[in-house]
Write a protein that binds this DNA or RNA. Structure first.
Lengths: 125, 125
DNA sequence: TTTACTGTCATAGTATATTATGACACTAAC
DNA sequence: GTTAGTGTCATAATATACTATGACAGTAAA
């Protein structure tokens, strides 16, 4: 995993794990890497990983069993889809609409997005 | 103007001015507020505003006349539309497509976006 | 009980963004 | 030339994210 600027590292780690839960790489009940193990793996400090895990525990997507480790909570996926979708529609979409307008973008610029939207719709039929 | 976390202040100031250029609140040749004036207005330090202006000068969207002030460069708008659009299509759109997929969003979620896209297309006819 | 994992906490050090402030140089207008 | 605006630079102080490291406590298995 590579880190970019613009977002703090512990948030990027959180987002990276969230993505794994949403895509199914991590399933409810799965144990996530130990704080020390992941820190070594990502070449960051233990405390930084700890901060990511503490945040995710507070968000209700990780459960903590002291002395054993952190685990993906039972309803992590549903909760994430609900919360992240709400966040997207309320925070990101308005900015996106504005950007589309001032940059004078047209449907052709969004072909990939359309294809993906149609796939999602067909899957739910 | 209010500052949010996640991005540094001097970048947020830059983005705020860029938006004013793109929407037409600021036009090529216009003088932007002096470093000291804007600092007081936004309740930040002179050096922070200076950093935003220096960045925008480097991006070629502000011209600097020592002793006089900073001015919106002649081709700021075209340059911004080109650069920001490229950045959007290469960096943001791929993330957006991925998010749309994992959050299982459908066309209805994007109604506002569609309306805006169609408006843009009609304006260019 | 010992061992080897786990999380947790505290302390100190580093890097960076931001602030606070003063001093200096350029430009225009009086 | 003086004045009042402009940008520019340097210094020191603060806040926060991150690092480095050690010590302690809970858990499970040998």
């Amino acid at each position: 995993m590579e880190f970019s600027d613009g977002k703090t590292i512990f948030i990027q780690i959180r987002d990276w794990l969230v993505d794994q839960i949403l895509t199914g790489s991590l399933s409810p009940g799965d144990k996530v890497p130990s704080v020390r193990e992941l820190a070594i793996d990502l070449e960051v400090n233990r405390n930084t990983v700890m901060r990511s895990y503490a945040l995710m525990e507070q968000e209700g997507i990780l459960d903590n069993k002291r002395g054993i480790g952190f685990f993906v909570s039972d309803h992590a996926r549903e909760r994430l889809i609900q919360d992240e979708k709400k966040l997207f529609l309320q925070e990101e979409l308005p900015k996106l609409v504005h950007q589309v307008k001032v940059l004078k973008m047209v449907p052709a610029d969004f072909k990939k997005l359309f294809d993906q939207l149609n796939e999602n719709q067909n899957e739910n039929k």
